[in-house]
């Protein structure tokens, strides 16, 4: 009961902030709503007893990545003339396409959830022998080893690339 209430409240917040992110005119405010959004998502993770994920969500997204967004927004002069902001018509169909894609995806997820409820996951979380952190670690280094390593490789490449871009003369 309490959990449901918390879930719906949090969901309202998440959706509300998401709408605010895209509708606010002030870019810095938009970034701030994004932070709030991420924090609400983290709270949702806590509700699912995935504390590790929640903490990482806050640490990486809210505390790290969005700070960089904020840097960019604050430092790069975004005050372009208004005609630049008026979306040229030719981009509209991309937006429609993407929206449709997301809608289809959401529908698929809902449909799949209706057909096969996610039972085993809930059963695992109630298993108290291993705690949350250890389970994430086990999964990452066993079942998901290859995606994990690929992701770290990708990050390394990104890092090197960033250094090369930033530093012209090596």
């Amino acid at each position: 009961m309490a959990q449901s209430i918390a879930f719906y409240v949090l969901s309202t917040f998440i959706l509300g902030f998401a709408v605010l992110v895209v509708t606010t005119r002030n870019t810095v405010h938009a970034v701030l709503f994004l932070v709030l959004n991420f924090l609400a998502v983290a709270a949702l993770y806590v509700l699912l007893t995935a504390q590790f994920l929640a903490v990482i969500q806050v640490l990486v997204y809210a505390g790290g990545i969005v700070v960089l967004y904020l840097f960019v927004v604050m430092l790069v002069n975004l005050k372009r003339p208004p005609e630049d902001h008026m979306a040229p018509q030719r981009h509209n169909w991309i937006g429609f396409g993407l929206s449709a894609l997301v809608l289809v995806e959401l529908g698929a997820i809902i449909g799949y959830g209706a057909v096969a409820p996610a039972g085993p996951v809930g059963a695992q979380t109630s298993d108290l022998a291993l705690n949350n952190v250890e389970r994430v670690g086990m999964l990452l280094y066993t079942d998901y080893l290859i995606p994990f390593e690929v992701a770290s490789m990708l990050l390394l490449v990104a890092m090197v690339g960033a250094i090369i871009l930033a530093k012209r003369e090596l």
Partner: peptide, 25 residues
């Protein structure tokens, strides 16, 4: 006693940065 106590501290501390950036901005 959270089982991710240390990470909790680190992540919460990382939020504090916002106050400083925004205060200055």
């Amino acid at each position: 006693d959270v089982n991710v106590g240390l990470l909790y501290i680190v992540s919460v501390a990382s939020i504090g940065v916002y106050g400083i950036i925004l205060g200055g901005w």
